[in-house]
């Protein structure tokens, strides 16, 4: 019931683009993200009174409230690039790294699916990209700036994390959960302010779930919780987003709806990195894939050209068949399935 509602409010790529091309300095709320009419009516006043919230549509705007300026150039989100070079990751310097010589890049507005069998190091890789683990060698940069000396808050202003479905120990309301996304934007001893509330509500509205705001997060269904976590990441206003198996433990319909969200996020100029166990999702999303083998091999490329039966056979050690399908609106779909 609630899940069905989520599918109804869509944001289109064209709307997001209008937002991105708009005048730079003001709090311009593109229709795709922030529905708050009140805020749109008086952008000039906002500009003088309050720090301009960094919008998801143009995630790299500097904020008055942040300690240092954002490294990405003003209003040019499309060139914001996350790049890892010769990266080696692992949990300990004394044992051999789990991954080495990783070279990847992702631009705002792209999707990158991490494919690979269990134990290939997908989690290790994205934790390193989130800055949760220090790289053992090599470097990572966001828009050309080396991130090795970034503190936690700076990371969180640029790259958000959506964990697999989680259950907090305490009955927070949905709004309280979404407000947590504002954490990297508030001062060291500060608390949530009015702008933060507005951004959180706008993030909920952009996903069409503002009616959940005062509900108990722990009482929601799995699909609803996943949507709330996406809203929290939007409230964080990042340039990049890491999703850890966003469709795990969701039913068939909710999986498709979450994937649609992922594509919408990319359309609104966020770079989305997601891990998945289903190669079909990489094919469906398009964009880039990074296929990680258990032997440490890494193949990166466009999904349609990269995800082949040979590659899947090598990655997962199963035989795979491919098929073409046509959707009702005439789209061609590539579908793969293992056979036994």
């Amino acid at each position: 019931m609630k899940d069905a509602d989520m599918g109804t409010v869509q944001l289109s790529a064209s709307q997001a683009d209008t937002g991105a091309q708009a005048d730079t300095g003001t709090v311009h709320l593109s229709a795709s993200y922030l529905h708050s009419q009140e805020m749109r009516q008086k952008p000039e006043q906002k500009r003088t009174d309050e720090p301009s919230p960094c919008l998801p549509a143009r995630p790299c705007l500097p904020e008055k409230r942040t300690v240092e300026p954002s490294p990405c150039p003003r209003g040019d989100a499309s060139t914001c690039v996350l790049r890892v070079q010769n990266l080696a990751c692992g949990y300990s310097k004394t044992v051999a790294p789990i991954l080495k010589d990783i070279n990847l890049s992702i631009t705002c507005g792209e999707t990158l699916c991490l494919l690979g069998p269990n134990g290939a190091g997908k989690t290790t890789l994205f934790k390193t990209m989130l800055g949760l683990i220090k790289p053992l060698a090599g470097q990572m940069s966001i828009n050309g700036e080396d991130t090795s000396n970034w503190h936690r808050r700076r990371f969180a202003q640029h790259i958000a994390y959506i964990p697999q479905e989680h259950m907090p120990a305490f009955p927070f309301t949905v709004k309280e959960v979404v407000l947590q996304g504002r954490t990297p934007h508030i001062g060291a001893l500060g608390s949530i302010g009015r702008t933060d509330n507005e951004v959180a509500m706008a993030a909920l509205a952009s996903l069409g779930i503002e009616h959940l705001a005062s509900r108990d997060y722990t009482m929601l269904s799995g699909g609803e919780r996943q949507m709330v976590l996406i809203a929290r990441a939007l409230a964080q206003q990042p340039a990049f987003l890491v999703m850890d198996e966003p469709t795990a433990s969701l039913d068939f319909g909710n999986q498709a709806r979450v994937l649609k969200r992922v594509r919408n996020l990319a359309d609104s100029k966020i770079g989305v990195i997601m891990t998945t166990h289903d190669p079909n999702q990489a094919l469906l999303l398009g964009g880039k894939v990074a296929c990680m083998g258990r032997d440490g091999s890494l193949v990166v490329g466009e999904s349609a050209a990269t995800v082949t039966s040979d590659l899947l056979n090598k990655l997962y050690d199963v035989k795979v068949a491919f098929a073409q399908a046509q959707t009702t609106d005439g789209q061609q779909l590539q579908i793969c399935a293992p056979f036994i």
Partner: peptide, 24 residues
């Protein structure tokens, strides 16, 4: 009281709190 908001975020567990910008 000064740490009230950070304590909210810490209730998500260390990794999520770090990803939300908290020096856990």
């Amino acid at each position: 009281f000064a740490l009230r908001w950070k304590m909210n975020v810490m209730a998500n567990g260390d990794e999520e709190a770090m990803a939300l910008g908290i020096e856990v």
